[in-house]
Simulated assay, not measured.
Amino acid sequence: MRTVQLVAVGVAIAVLATGGIIAFRLDTGTRKLDYIAGSNDPNRVELDVTLQRVDVTGRELDLRIVPILYGNLADGTDAVPARDLEIDTSSLTTGLLRFKAHDRVSLQDVRMGVDEGLVSSYPFDSYAATIGFFVTAGDQNVPVSLRFRSYDALFTAELTDAAWPTGQLKANVLAGRTFSSSVLAWFLMVAMWALALSVLGAALTIVSKKMGLVWPAMGWMAATLFALVGFRNAAPGSPPIGALIDYGAFFWAELLTTASLVYVTVNGIRRARLT
């Protein structure tokens, strides 16, 4: 019988581990997608754009941009422009990017504002932003293409609704929580409710059995009260207080735990005074 139990436990562990590896591969696979949009003209500027971070509190996207030159716009290599290159962006902080002719281009960090999305919706929050580029080489509009990918560990992002008249490119970026961060956030919410309900059940049992002041149980309840704060602060992305996770679980779990501890204490004191 013991051998059967050990085998069952081993199989369960193997199944769970395999499921975890599959989920990991599916999650990481969504982060490696490249989105390509724009002109396919042989003489064009391709903007290699990577999303480094979604700043949910500042409502900005941190983008890293590297121009890649094709055809007669390149001076021997795709990293050296044959003519002065200017890239105007829709960023309100960075604005115009300039690259001198015959000098190697370098990556540029640009911050784009978010149009839609609030961190207060965590863990269901998602963000939308419009990114735009206007490119000239030697004071002439040139065809533009865009390669976009996301490197933010907490968000997956995709490119939609791109338009590219000559010299311009505009597209929408949609960023949402990764599968892993969403699962962890949901687990924390369920765990907070489970802990609070466990404390409530213990409190009702102690009072109904007229057990008085049960110090170990009361110590556990008090410890749970502070453990819930640690659970809340472990939420991926460190959402500010007042997010949906608080109204959906944390505030209620703290309230139930506090009320249970006070209920047991008051009833225990009353019984102790009567004996």
Rank of each mutant, 00 (worst) to 15 (best):
V7S: 14
G20F: 08
G20E: 11
A23H: 09
G29E: 07
A37H: 08
G38N: 07
G38P: 05
L47S: 05
D48T: 08
V49F: 00
V54R: 01
T57H: 08
L61G: 03
R64P: 04
P67T: 06
Y70M: 08
Y70L: 10
G76C: 03
E86P: 03
D88E: 12
D88K: 14
S90F: 04
S91W: 01
G95K: 13
F99D: 03
A101L: 07
H102R: 15
D103V: 15
R104H: 09
E116N: 14
S120Q: 15
Y122M: 03
S126R: 08
T130Y: 00
F133G: 11
S145E: 02
F155S: 03
T166N: 14
G167H: 02
A185M: 04
L195M: 14
A196M: 08
V199L: 09
L200I: 12
G201S: 05
L204K: 12
T205I: 05
K210R: 15
K210F: 10
L213C: 01
M218H: 01
M221C: 06
A222Y: 00
T224C: 12
L225N: 02
V229R: 06
R232H: 05
A235C: 01
S238W: 02
L244W: 06
D246H: 15
G248V: 13
F251P: 09
V266R: 15
R270H: 07
